[in-house]
Nucleic acid binder design. Structure first.
Lengths: 187, 187
DNA sequence: ACGCGATAATTAGCCTCCTAATTAGTAACT
DNA sequence: AGTTACTAATTAGGAGGCTAATTATCGCGT
């Protein structure tokens, strides 16, 4: 989340002042918004720094996690289109990431025999073991970042964030059995 | 904040399951972390989309805001080094942004007469008016994103986020007069 | 005055993202 | 069988990040 990681966020009092020239400015909204962006960016950068120690980038890691069966510890092949959809990026981006992951021997490409337009991306054994070497540290790193928050604060945070970012269908969640539909996410 | 904007975040119940294979995983920390990243990314992308309508990127916008005197509505020249420091990016990044902003006639470069190693970047009148054309919509867009939150929730959110992201010197804040040290931030 | 180390900006080269254009393969309809 | 329409992936070209290497200028000590 580049180039807005201001060292100093404006103080609430300063925002109140600025309203004089900028009547559209909502000080409390602005404060919440800027703090959200900064906290998100900082968390992101910390993970990025950790992954970089293992020659990984967030994109590479996310892509590999999407190919990883968390329960079985095996590879779950997927097409570039499916990966792009799950990761929320353009297909061309997946092509580029797979290029470098393939070069490093972490994934392989294979034509889908049923429809030769499609490719199937697989984690190699080296890819699986690389990932499993990274995961414990990654989890510890996440836990450390949230360590300052109590269980209550974590719950409150999630609740408030979900009011902002459209949890796509909040009503539908209640009806579905959470254990049946294991989410296809990375961590 | 690229390539981790998962469509579906793992459900808390799913995380509890995963702990069996991954004992380092702290489910509540993971949930809070992923929601933070997603909310930050979504807010960022919405702003980015708004700015793009005005032929702006977050980087260009941030840079111009750093050159803009919010009270007087005029240009406040600054060196690339100072801009890099305030924006939290590398100097080379500033060079690139200034290149394109200069090409578009929004800023100018000028040698500092006192030290010819330094450049001073100025907003042009066109830059000022462009910025002022964008600001009202930008503020409205921020307010709209936070509209679902009550005043209380905004305060709580800011408080919790500040426990995570290192507010650099929380103790020092209390002593300083907030109105004297107007923050040098963009909004 | 002259050179030497420090500092400011730029350049070069890489990665990750994007959109738009291209290539390859499928399917469906004459 | 051949055209046509669609879909999947890749390529091409651009922007914004980064680090490391270059270039220009300054300031200081001799």
């Amino acid at each position: 989340m580049p180039l807005l990681m201001l060292k100093d966020l404006p103080r609430y009092e300063g925002l109140l002042e600025a309203v004089r020239r900028h009547p559209d400015l909502d000080p409390s909204a602005c404060e919440a918004y800027l703090n959200l962006l900064r906290a998100g960016d900082e968390a992101y950068r910390q993970s990025e720094a950790f992954l970089a120690e293992h020659n990984m980038s967030p994109g590479r890691f996310t892509l590999m996690m999407l190919l990883y069966d968390k329960m079985a510890g095996t590879s779950v092949p997927a097409t570039p289109a499916a990966l792009a959809e799950k990761a929320g990026v353009a297909r061309a981006t997946i092509t580029g990431l797979v290029d470098t992951l393939e070069r490093d021997g972490l994934v392989t490409r294979e034509h889908d025999p049923r429809d030769r337009r499609m490719m199937l991306i697989h984690l190699t054994p080296k890819g699986v073991s690389t990932l499993e070497g990274i995961l414990p540290g990654h989890f510890q790193q996440m836990a450390a970042q949230m360590a300052a928050l109590s269980q209550d604060e974590r719950k409150t945070l999630v609740r408030i964030l979900n009011k902002i970012a459209g949890s796509p269908a909040p009503a539908a969640r209640i009806e579905t059995d959470p254990l049946v539909h294991a989410s296809p996410s990375t961590y």
